[in-house]
Design a protein around this nucleic acid. Sequence first.
DNA 1: GCTAATAACTTGTAATTACAAGTTATTATT
DNA 2: AATAATAACTTGTAATTACAAGTTATTAGC
Lengths: 232, 232
Amino acid sequence: MPYYRRLYELLRKHIREGVYKEGDLLPSENELCSLYQLTRPTVRQALSALVNDGYIRKQQGKGSIVNKIPQGIGILSVSGTTTALKNQNLKTITIEKPRVITWPGNFMFGLSETEKESGCIYMTRLRLLNELPIFYDISYIPNINLPRFTARKFDNRSLFDVLRKTYQLEITSGEQKIRAIKAEQKVCDFLQIRTGHPVLHMERKMHTNRPGLNIYSSIYCNTREHAIYGTF
Amino acid sequence: MPYYRRLYELLRKHIREGVYKEGDLLPSENELCSLYQLTRPTVRQALSALVNDGYIRKQQGKGSIVNKIPQGIGILSVSGTTTALKNQNLKTITIEKPRVITWPGNFMFGLSETEKESGCIYMTRLRLLNELPIFYDISYIPNINLPRFTARKFDNRSLFDVLRKTYQLEITSGEQKIRAIKAEQKVCDFLQIRTGHPVLHMERKMHTNRPGLNIYSSIYCNTREHAIYGTF
DNA sequence: GCTAATAACTTGTAATTACAAGTTATTATT
DNA sequence: AATAATAACTTGTAATTACAAGTTATTAGC
């Protein structure tokens, strides 16, 4: 792991654990240099990654100021869904275990030839916050070089954790379409809401560090109690 | 304007105008160096800003690959709402002209003391896409050093354009809460939809380059025809 | 005691050099 | 002709140096 990345991970951990609180100043770039035996460009690379991910903001002449950690459900952020939640009780239930299907006709995003040919791993999950169902997820993953995937279990573990640890797959960026819709019967049942209740529908395409491999989800979200929170 | 910024603006313009199309490779970093008489760190700074804003992705050993330009309604991106739309006919109507009010009780985000003391500029606008109302915007701006703001006109011009050009205010980042709700009567009237139709509700806090000055909006969005599109 | 200049910080920009690591086209070998 | 090694690219990481520009604390002068 490169030096700038190590420093990034360390500072990120410190911020998340409250070593540096909201409004605090990080050590200055020169201090970080001498603390960790790095040069300024390297330190700046780590800091700009933190700025990028919303952990700090910088002000010329002043320093690196720690931002408030997102407390809501940070599903809009790049990092996995589970990560943004800290003390809240989030549980994941697999409704349909992963199985290989042919891609649905009229898919939400355009597919490459490679993706079309390789078929699709399909699974549905329900995610509960404090015992209340919040997300109904339908995931579509191209069946490209992911051995034994359908045999894996995801209960109480983020799909993205498995992808990262087992297949070294990381989400690098993505696109999404968001709508407010009247939920159909099946979705209402899963989310335990009245038929026709407004529901947030997200269609996401997530790019990974493996070029050409994208992960797709269709997510229905009950926002009655919790809003979707995101930074940009 | 710094060199890296100039190169960023130029390449961004070229991508938006189609000089480089989706999937194309930009000139290599070394080519850009000799083309514009810059050094590689400077070129890389410009490119990483383009990666950041989703215009390109990079692949080691290959090059900088141009991404698809977002064609939807790019309200989730940092840049102003109007910018992401290209050939579509977007019109803005001011419903309530900017006026100074006291901050509403139970405001959607916590306010600093400075913000509370300085009062609030309030305005509401309706934005139409191809003659159809899509967004109903309520904006709240702290009345801090913005001379003659209430006298300005915003018809058919992005609020953010005025803020940038008149007051050198730029949005640097922000946070938002998103919900699917049943629209109340007034909102339905503005958006020309049936009472109780699902509507997307966004509450946004936008940080600016002027430390301590944030812009707030509450946006109701009709997503029946158009989805909100964003990259991350 | 107050004010203004200054010094000592902070981050921002930029050139230079060097090598590592991934990709692609070329060349040599079989 | 197909394959494997290689060379010539590409971007990634990292140290070094220098000065510009913004912020804050100190100091000198009144």
